[in-house]
């Protein structure tokens, strides 16, 4: 039951409605550190070709949730299922072998390393045998260029350092890399939060691109305006609990913003600010 069946094995099992089986599903997982409960009773799932957004303010438990999904932490309670099979992930490497890749906001790329070397870092293609086995520069350059082209990024010189790319492009290269190395589920940790409006747009487009290619995407953000255009479903986290999950059809952008920022608090704040403004104009 709890055996961590590798992906190919589960392919052999005949499955009537394979598209309906979530690529990744967690059932009421909790994670406690000592006597601090970071997340409590969170359930969510992502299917192929679907973007699920996890929204939450700072301290809502987003990073614990990401790390649990990514295999860094093991859930204290609850079930973790990959394509309907319960698994226990021992490490991020283990998650990767199940097709679950995580792209971290600031750890995505090494700025001084070239694009193709970044793309293949840790999984370099080689050619030749024995002591003459060497890094296949040509293949690395070609594949990196092709894969980026599939994501709509045209790069002539893949030997330029990643640092010459814009922030949005860097995140996109990381996404392309994860997809190339067989990721079925992409977990994106705040990929847009450090970016300007235009660059965030670039990344959002690649998220859609990855979805079109059949990936399941879990998009973690604190920005409902980034989440709404690309998301199919929205889960809001607050103080380690899930406040609920909505399909796009069931929630408007305004409502999402409201719920996300704790609705009444924001209304209260707006009210107070209006008061300050009124005071200011009076004196």
């Amino acid at each position: 039951m709890s055996a961590a069946a590798p992906l190919p094995a589960s392919d052999d099992v005949p499955r009537p409605q394979v598209d309906d089986v979530p690529l990744l599903e967690v059932e009421s997982i909790s994670k406690t550190f000592g006597n601090v409960t970071a997340i409590r009773d969170v359930s969510m799932r992502v299917r192929a070709g679907e973007v699920v957004c996890v929204l939450g303010d700072n301290g809502a438990g987003k990073s614990t949730l990401i790390k649990t999904l990514a295999g860094v932490h093991q859930p204290t309670t609850g079930r973790y299922l990959v394509r309907g099979q319960e698994v226990q992930l021992a490490s991020p490497r283990d998650a990767l072998s199940h097709g679950i890749a995580t792209v971290y906001q600031d750890l995505a790329m090494i700025p001084l390393l070239s694009i193709s070397r970044n793309f293949f870092l840790g999984s370099e293609p080689t050619t030749g045998v024995g002591p003459f086995r060497r890094y296949d520069v040509r293949k690395a350059d070609r594949v990196a260029r092709e894969e980026l082209a599939k994501m709509g990024i045209t790069i002539r010189d893949t030997s330029q350092p990643v640092g010459t790319l814009s922030g949005g492009e860097r995140q996109s290269v990381a996404i392309a890399r994860a997809v190339y190395f067989g990721a079925r589920v992409l977990i994106l940790d705040e990929p847009t939060s450090a970016l300007g409006v235009r660059q965030a747009g670039v990344v959002l487009r690649y998220i859609v691109q990855a979805r079109e290619r059949g990936c399941g995407v879990i998009f973690i953000t604190h920005n409902p305006h980034h989440a709404y255009p690309v998301g199919d479903r929205f889960t809001i986290l607050n103080q380690g609990r899930s406040e609920g999950t909505w399909d796009k059809a069931d929630i408007s952008r305004e409502e999402l913003v409201q719920r996300m920022s704790g609705g009444t608090e924001l209304a209260q704040l707006e009210h107070e600010l209006r008061g300050v403004d009124a005071d200011g104009s009076r004196s």
């Binding site: 750890l107 090494i110 390393l113 293949f120 870092l121 840790g122």
Partner: peptide, 20 residues
């Protein structure tokens, strides 16, 4: 590959570790 790892490790220890 080892050479690429040298650059990776020096460029960002954590990122290199994450990539295996």
């Amino acid at each position: 590959r080892f050479g690429n790892w040298i650059f990776g490790v020096g460029g960002s220890n954590a990122a290199a570790r994450n990539l295996g």
